[in-house]
Design a protein around this nucleic acid. Structure first.
Lengths: 188, 188
DNA sequence: AAATTTAGATTGATTGGTCAGTCATTACTG
DNA sequence: CAGTAATGACTGACCAATCAATCTAAATTT
């Protein structure tokens, strides 16, 4: 990826997260990235294409962060717990990125194709759930629903930690307790 | 509330939910409501004020729906379960309204004052949780966090039911099971 | 090694279109 | 007929996207 392209995406993340997509003119993005307005359109066909690129970048950073140190051969609980911790960690380390990713999810701004291609990257999580159910370690429900519950609880945990500025021990306790609540719910 | 005012809010809900706030010009809202563009601004000082009115209306309808048949003197579980069922019911009966309410929640379009005043209306739910914890019927966590978990799971349940077009028996089973997962998680 | 050509990247003023909000005029209504 | 509500053409501001001009640096020639 070109350096200017990366700067433009970075500037977009900053501005979209702080001002919202509809309130940030392409001219401001270009300025914030230190290039001319025309340059933006050399790299991205349109503003819509730019937002797809932003979304892809966020999702990829996020996924990479989640998988760092993933205990491939751990127990199911260990693996799920790892994702739980890493996700919350990411949300607290990169609040702008996190809130933008959340907003984009609901917003219809990201193309259908991009949404799908990014979702496909999470197949491993789905597999994990399927196996957990097969092994009797998770309650027998549609894996898609369990995945959604997992994610929903995660969002709640992050937004609570953010709202209450948790850090240090209280944060660790909150994360652990949140996970236990989730685990107790989906475990026979 | 004036009839035209109500029509304008109704039209806004329709269009905002389907096209998004930023893609629906005030002119189209007025047309859809059967009035002239100028009339809209007789009733709402600006587009921003209109969206506040839309939000208030949605929240109020929602709250009314939730509380219909509320078992004031039932057990804690019965009361929570009632809210659970009614919320999902509302989401499935009024998908446009539901999705708009979700979007507005994250969007920063609703004024801070309106957000707060509507949140204050949910004090009864908070009270319920506090009492549940005091009585040892719920695990000992910050009531605010339990509330957030409750809501997050509810969203997951609605979006799953919507995505899979559930109805009849499968729907009932899904709702009940979702509640059991939640309840098992937050109960000692 | 200097001079010249070439291809591609960068620039930002400009354009064409959109839209929130206005206000002079018209239509009701009691 | 007075007062209130409704109308819709209009305005000023904003912005995505364009494109002719300019710059840069690599390639080629003298």
């Amino acid at each position: 990826m070109n350096e200017k392209e990366a700067q433009l995406i970075e500037a977009s993340i900053d501005l979209f997260a702080q001002e919202g997509f509809w309130n940030t003119p392409t001219a401001r993005i270009a300025k914030h990235a230190g290039v001319a307005t025309g340059t933006l359109f050399n790299y991205f066909e349109s503003k819509d294409v730019l937002i797809d690129a932003v979304y892809r970048q966020l999702k990829q950073e996020w996924k990479t962060y989640l998988l760092a140190g993933y205990p491939q051969d751990g127990t199911l609980k260990e693996r799920v717990e790892h994702i739980w911790f890493r996700h919350i960690d990411w949300g607290l380390h990169f609040p702008l990125r996190y809130s933008l990713m959340m907003q984009l999810k609901l917003s219809d701004l990201v193309s259908h194709e991009m949404q799908q291609s990014q979702e496909a990257e999470l197949a491993f999580a789905y597999e994990m759930i399927v196996q957990g159910i097969a092994a009797g370690e998770l309650i027998d429900t549609d894996p898609a629903y369990l995945g959604q519950i997992f994610y929903a609880q995660l969002e709640a945990a992050v937004s609570y930690a953010t709202d209450h500025n948790l850090s240090g021990m209280p944060l660790t306790r909150h994360i652990t307790q949140g996970f236990e609540i989730f685990w107790q719910g989906v475990t026979p």
